[in-house]
Amino acid sequence: MNNDSQKPYQRTCLKIVFSLLAIWFFVSFGCGILFRDWLDANAPPIGNAPAGFWMAQQGSIITFVCILVVYAALMNLLDAKHGYSEED
């Protein structure tokens, strides 16, 4: 077992996971549900849609796709750095 290269790898990996989950929580449960009323009233509208409503029906889904793209890119880079990547 090569624990020396495993530990930093796992630490970075968890850091990526937790930051992305924070974004995930913020856009869906945060903007879409918990602070929706505040956003509807105070944030600039997206086109003609109230911001909170738009986040719940469109913005959150678009962000989810971006989260996964970022995750795949960062993780595949990290794998390459630690020599874990395999040919596709």
Partner: peptide
């Protein structure tokens, strides 16, 4: 469902897509 309940239907829109973030990352 979206047509009938408007904003309230967002739970399905977010729930069934956001689950894939959990699925992929965790």
């Amino acid at each position: 469902t979206v047509a009938l309940s408007g904003y309230d239907a967002s739970r399905f829109l977010m729930g069934w897509t956001g689950g894939f973030v959990l699925l992929t990352i965790l």
